[in-house]
């Protein structure tokens, strides 16, 4: 039905000026960009899948990694990410409402809805920053072995995770943080963790209630818990104390998990940030009446497309990082 539209202009097909897709130049270009950007994100998520399938038996369980909610103590897996998702969908809704008001040329409403959209985006970016900070800071701390595997600690009686501070011994020793100013200017040591390997090992030996948990995922879908004897043998492989996550070490498990987390959510966060910036520019244009004079609000529609795309990507990131 709709595909036969071109018949009307059949007489002057060669003269140019046809719009077979029925979309303006700007909108079409925005769609071009969105499709190519979608392919970029798909590449990232597919490579995440690649690494995950490669280490399918040892990949971290997202529920155990993202368990915090700001201003609340305790273990609340996923609630905060769900909230973030809702905020982003909500800001998408205000964006559609702005586009709708733009079609009807109601400037006041466009201003209001654009403002709400910007607020939603800002809340989302802020939440993501908080999520990053929490992830980088870390939770319980862990031990990295010579082979680069992560050993975490669990209290045998309650089954809860044990933080290093709960059991590590304090052994007085001189540890000096080697900073850039103390030696050759380009050489700087990593910041020292709160405990040495020796302190953690001694703490484990002295505390019969502590068991080691490895990265391996068992049949039941939980991480493998070693017995007390196995734990005592395993701790001998310890090489480093890891607290939090960065691009090289990750207390939650596979370091690739942290790398992809920073890369994909970072790239998405950067999109949201630029989206907010573009929205602000358009917002001021609306207030100045630029589109009122132009006679249409198509610009709002175009940034709207971008904004919804950011939301769309988040839906996928949410699924593949936090749910699956």
């Amino acid at each position: 039905m709709e595909t036969s539209v071109t018949t009307a202009s059949e007489g002057r097909v060669w003269g140019g000026g046809n719009r077979p897709l029925g979309a303006s130049y700007g909108k079409l270009m925005m769609w071009f960009f969105i499709v190519s950007d979608a392919l970029t994100f798909s590449g990232f998520l597919a490579s995440y899948g690649f690494s995950r399938f490669k280490f399918i038996e040892t990949w971290p369980i997202a529920d155990e990694v993202f368990t915090h909610v700001p201003f609340f103590h305790g273990n609340y897996p996923m609630y905060y990410v769900a909230f973030m998702t809702f905020i982003l969908i909500m800001s998408s809704v205000t964006m559609v409402l702005a586009v709708d008001a733009g079609h009807k040329m109601i400037q006041k409403k466009v201003i209001l809805y654009m403002f709400l959209t910007i607020i939603g985006g800002a809340i989302f970016v802020g939440s993501q920053a908080w999520e990053w900070a929490t992830f980088i800071k870390g939770d319980y701390g862990a031990i990295e072995t010579k082979g680069g595997r992560i050993l975490q600690f669990v209290k045998a009686d309650s089954g809860e995770r044990a933080a290093l501070a709960d059991f590590a011994k304090t052994i007085p020793s001189d540890r000096i943080d080697h900073e850039r100013r103390n030696g050759v200017w380009f050489y700087q040591d990593k910041a020292l963790p709160s405990y040495t390997v020796n302190e953690v090992t001694e703490g484990l030996l002295a505390n019969p209630n502590i068991l080691i948990r490895t990265e391996t995922i068992t049949e039941s879908g939980d991480k493998q818990l070693l017995t007390r004897e196995e734990s005592l043998t395993r701790i001998k492989d310890a090489k480093e104390v890891v607290e939090g996550a960065n691009l090289i070490h990750n207390e939650y498990g596979s370091r690739l998990f942290a790398d992809f987390f920073f890369f994909i959510t970072g790239f998405h966060g950067f999109h949201v940030f630029s989206g907010v910036m573009i929205n602000i520019i358009i917002f001021f244009n609306i207030i100045l009446g630029t589109y009122e004079r132009r006679g249409h609000y198509e610009m709002v529609e175009k940034v709207g497309l971008y904004w919804h795309f950011v939301d769309l990507v988040w839906v996928f990131v949410f699924t593949f990082f936090y749910l699956v």
Partner: peptide, 24 residues
Amino acid sequence: VLTLVKAYYIAWDFMHLRDEKNSL
């Protein structure tokens, strides 16, 4: 599957693909 369902409604109703031409 639920993610794809969500993606469908975001693209079709928020990005108003529903109102665009079939070819686009």
